[in-house]
Amino acid sequence: MTEKELTIQSVLYRKKILQYIYQAKAGHTGGDLSCIDILNVLYNKVLRVSPETFNSPDRDRYVQSKGHCVEALYVVLASKGYFAEEDLNTICKYESHYIGHPTKKIKGIEQNTGALGHGLPICVGMAIAAKLDKKDYRVYTLLGDGELPEGSNWEAALTAAQYKLDNICVIIDKNQLQITGPTNEVCSTDPLPEKWESFGWAVREIDGNDIAALTAAFDALPFEKGKPSVIIANTIKGKGVSFMENQIKWHHGVPTEEQYHQAQHELDTVLQSLID
């Protein structure tokens, strides 16, 4: 996909995310909208995996540590053909596999996540396995900035550096908000680049809602041979819908009918301007 096509795809994904959250009356709206550009570039440009190769031992792995933003993952996987999009009509319904966090019951999902601070240790194990088996697959995990105080992240960061895992890439969706408020007021993890560098990681900081910046960063992996890579993606929570951007209440807010139509209208306007 070209940069322009990816930009259009992001708007389409945002519309789908809102559609299914509005329909299910549940979802992590703000975080879905902050991380969707990252998922878009990963699945449409970077990851060497498809529905056909999903069981191949050589596939790239993506583990979503911030499991609560599962609606973003669902709409991307549906667009790639892992399952029929109509399955998403069952999100959070009785006996549906499409629950509020990722599970392996759904094709395309590597690991059950939801409790925070779990993605990176699992990915370290996967990356060590790749080295043991002399395979060239890469392992990617998306962390929220709110989950960074979980100590297990930093335990795994140490092991990744110790084992020189340059086949692992962490992406931090740094939207600077969490359920209680601004991350810096809850538990600051700044200065973040210096922290990861001091843990032995190669760091890039980019605009995480910028398709070109994301593409360039992923193209540059590994940032340094023999070191694990981390992309600090500065994003906007609620990105793409004016009244949701940077608003804590949209952490898991569900739009009213009026808000829903306004949001879709805003996204349609952007879409039109991109197509014209």
Partner: peptide
């Protein structure tokens, strides 16, 4: 030596890493 992974005193990581290894077919 290649089949012995040491994570240091970090038991949460011990189990998470083991899970990742097992997911890739390692008898962990």
């Amino acid at each position: 030596p290649d089949q012995h992974i040491e994570v240091g005193i970090a038991e949460q990581n011990l189990v998470g890493v083991a899970a990742g290894l097992a997911s890739c077919g390692k008898k962990t």
